[in-house]
Design a binder for these strands. Structure first.
Lengths: 112, 112
DNA sequence: ATCCTTGTTCAATATTTATTGAACAATTGA
DNA sequence: TCAATTGTTCAATAAATATTGAACAAGGAT
């Protein structure tokens, strides 16, 4: 099933996770995955963020850090956020990241 | 007062913060600062984490990312966590990090 | 003044990380 | 079978990061 190597919950390391997220491209990938559009997305869904090769590299980083799950399906790979695992391992962390990722409100709209 | 360059709250970038924290040494520094022993600590307080030169480098990274404040006092530098700023900018983020940093409980002690 | 303490800067190096393009593998579809 | 799709691997390179030691600067203490 889980074909590619994924770290088990308890061997997900904070520093490793943080390093994986400390990159705009990967942060954007997580933002998209978290957007809730769909639980799983193919690699090609992120093609606007970089080259095919580059994405393969970044997605591997995210997988190795324990942030995403990659499930081969035919010739495609279905990527999903390891929400439950991350919430269990680092309570509140993922949510705070995702919230920050959301478009920030500009000062103007504060009237009313 | 604030002698060295520190980013203003609204120019603290998430990816930058995450990258700064994606390093065991710097994560340990933040852990110590958050431990509450004292609000401010001198650089020498972290000397067990690396060389004098290395710490100067890592502390600069943390300062530039907006994670710590550095206040020169005589020949020393007093380092403190920018708690309030970070809480305002990224609500919940710092707390989740600090909680994860805390020594994890081992399975045994779960019996009341 | 002289020394000691605390910490920075600089230059050199080592190590990691990121980016590219070409070639490859597996699956799907005609 | 042949071609198209989806994505990986590899080797080369570029670029960013980390680590060292030596030299320096600013205070504080005597």
């Amino acid at each position: 099933m889980t074909n590619l190597p994924h770290p088990a919950i308890d061997q997900i390391e904070l520093a490793h996770v943080l390093a994986a997220l400390g990159d705009e491209t990967r942060l954007a990938i997580i933002g998209l995955l978290a957007s809730g559009e769909q639980d799983e997305m193919t690699c090609s869904r992120f093609l606007h963020l970089g080259s095919k090769t580059g994405l393969s590299y970044h997605l591997a980083k995210l997988r190795e850090a324990g942030l995403v799950n990659v499930r081969p399906e035919g010739t495609k790979r279905l990527i999903s956020l390891r929400r439950a695992d991350l919430d269990q391992r680092f309570p509140g962390f993922l949510d705070s990241i995702i919230a920050c990722q959301a478009p920030r409100q500009d000062p103007q709209q504060d009237q009313l």
